[in-house]
Simulated scan of single mutants.
Amino acid sequence: MAVLALAGALTACSDKAAAPAPSGPVEVGVVTLQPERQTITTELPGRASAFLSAEIRPQVGGIVQKRLFTEGALVKAGQVLYQLDAASYQAAQASAQASLAKVQAAVGAAEATARRNAELVKIDAISRQVDDDSQAALVLARSDVAVARAAVENARISLSYTRIVAPISGRTTTSSVTPGALVTANQAAALTTVSQLDPLYVDVTQSSTEVLRLKSDMASGRFQRSDAASARITLKFEDGSVYQHPGKLQFSGVNVNPGTGAVTLRAVVPNPQGLLMPGMYVRAVLEAGVNEQALLVPQQGVTRDATGNANVLLVDKDNKIERRRIKVDAAVGSRWQLVSGLVAGDRVVVDGLQRIKAGDTVKAIEVVTKASGAGSPEAAQAVMPAASAASGAR
């Protein structure tokens, strides 16, 4: 009797454990693909360079008397940077002015002689040869005045060059000379350099292969060319931080460097705080084109097989699971940019992948997407509804 009672209890427990689970299709979260306007960007290496740069050299020789600027400070165009000893140039100007006065006095005498001879020749008081000589002497005297005036102007210019001024506004570098140094006209070594740092140029290089690929995509109609007048460029520093002031593409090279196989692009970038410095290495994110019908696939819905091919699970019109191989390109936030394999309207499974397989009948629930970060507006994060969450708990 005891054995029969024990067997009956075990049978009851077994029947209870084998009770069938509630039937019904599994709930999965899906995202319906819709075409979006997507800006095509490319990240390229680049270096900053001054918008304007002037190496300061003396145009006359002499002893430096004063340095009239602070190294590293901002200077204005026309501001005096160095004062050279001007004594010899002042003397040269005074000598030129005296020579001018001398020849001007000679002109007065020549004019009087020529005027008098012109009257005398009319009454045959003098020969015509004497009159001609006096007229020629007047022309020569007037030429001497013109030469003397040019000498005075030249002396004035040389004297003005003893005040070495900044040709542009900008920030100075260190000075290579101190008061008392001897400098010469047009010497090889610059006294200092003035650089305009706001805005700055950023020169980036793009491989010719990338240029050809982009042109091919544009020719096929996949991408549209970005408006050159509004093509933006965003900079990243070496530490990965993003520079807050976007620039604008100004120039695209037409020749390929035979040594590097790259094309040079130039952008103008504002630099109000002076964070960018000439020679600084940056990464430039350039807007290359626009895809008006881009399809972006959430990364959590993409898996890869043993050979590295990308695959997704779709929910077809009969609510059955279908596995499809796709081809993706660059990452855009938390999504992949689709190249081929899907069309607009396809429903991609992004939640519940572990509970289903190809051929299963499911209940598709559209998920809500939201931006995953302020700095990445394209990035999306799937948020499941309460009903789907409950399904996952079961």
Rank of each mutant, 00 (worst) to 15 (best):
E43P: 11
S49V: 02
A48V: 11
A50W: 03
R47N: 05
T39M: 09
I40V: 14
T39G: 08
A54D: 07
S53N: 05
R57K: 09
A50N: 01
T70N: 03
R47I: 00
Q65I: 14
T39S: 14
F69L: 00
P35I: 07
L68Q: 10
L68H: 05
R67P: 01
E36N: 13
L68I: 04
I63Q: 15
S49F: 05
G61D: 13
L33F: 12
L33N: 08
V28L: 01
V31M: 08
G29N: 03
A54M: 14
G29H: 08
E43G: 15
E43F: 13
T42L: 12
I63W: 12
E55N: 15
P35H: 12
E43W: 12
T39A: 11
R67G: 03
F69M: 00
V64K: 06
T39Q: 10
E36Q: 14
R47G: 02
R47P: 00
T70C: 02
T70Y: 02
E36C: 09
R47M: 05
T39N: 11
T41H: 07
I40M: 03
K66C: 07
P45L: 10
Q34A: 13
V60A: 04
E55K: 15
L68D: 01
F51W: 06
G29L: 06
Q59S: 07
V30M: 11
Q65E: 14
Q34V: 14
L44Q: 05
F69S: 00
Q65F: 14
L33V: 09
G62N: 01
V64N: 04
A54R: 12
G29Q: 00
